[in-house]
Design a protein around this nucleic acid. Sequence first.
DNA 1: GTAGCTGCAAACTCTTTGCAACTCT
DNA 2: AGAGTTGCAAAGAGTTTGCAGCTAC
Lengths: 137, 137
Amino acid sequence: MTELEQRCAKAGLKMTGQRRTILKILGEAADHPSVEDVYARAKSIDTTISIATVYRTLSLLDELDLVIRHEFHEGHSRYELNWDHHHHLIDLESGQVIEFQNKELEAMKEKIARDLGYELVDHRLELYGKKIKGKKK
Amino acid sequence: MTELEQRCAKAGLKMTGQRRTILKILGEAADHPSVEDVYARAKSIDTTISIATVYRTLSLLDELDLVIRHEFHEGHSRYELNWDHHHHLIDLESGQVIEFQNKELEAMKEKIARDLGYELVDHRLELYGKKIKGKKK
DNA sequence: GTAGCTGCAAACTCTTTGCAACTCT
DNA sequence: AGAGTTGCAAAGAGTTTGCAGCTAC
């Protein structure tokens, strides 16, 4: 039983085959799959799984904070495991999503929230950019 | 003719009554209205306006970058004029949206993008927090 | 055994679109 | 005059839900 599965079980979720399949897919995903993506990958493992189950499972995982739901202005959501905290740079030309982390940024966000009288619970930063062509090294 | 209307006209948009109404509403909005909000307010000025026109106009304004479209994970979009650049802190308990700016943050984001080999075109930062009750002054 | 989970299909919400009539320039 | 815009209603996309049967615990 994986750590992820343990955390689900601890939250009172029954570990069904479908849920194991979806957790496996999320654990192996190097990208930020949409619901349709997760569904397609799940079907290659369990051909009988339904998209309703994928929606329900991802919502549950989101509530448990095991997963992060993104809205990259595409008309649908994308998901990823909530493992290591990071942010995203979206390539406006190719749609490619690049992950990054930055300690200073984290500290700064905490401070901004505190100065406004808030305890920071969650936050999102998305950068949208274009690749610089002429590499001025 | 307002500056906003001039910028629309310059982009080749015809200045119809409906568009003027919507621009007026956005200019006067102190919040971040949803499409339904804009539609409701528009109707109080022009009872014959349709929600299709509101959708179409907001999309156009978004393309022209006169407006910013937000997805605060509510299942619908919210809009605001793209005047002064700022970010948002969303109160998780009340849903209240607080705006803030931060120079250091801006500089840092430019740097992160550049270091990744990207020219920053746009970006979003959203903080989600809870009000700190015991004001430890 | 039973509370919870699943697949299916229908329903729902938000948004977009085809079309004929109308209007800004 | 003519290209662009509008309202209407229908269609589309993404997501949720009621229900009967099934399954993990």
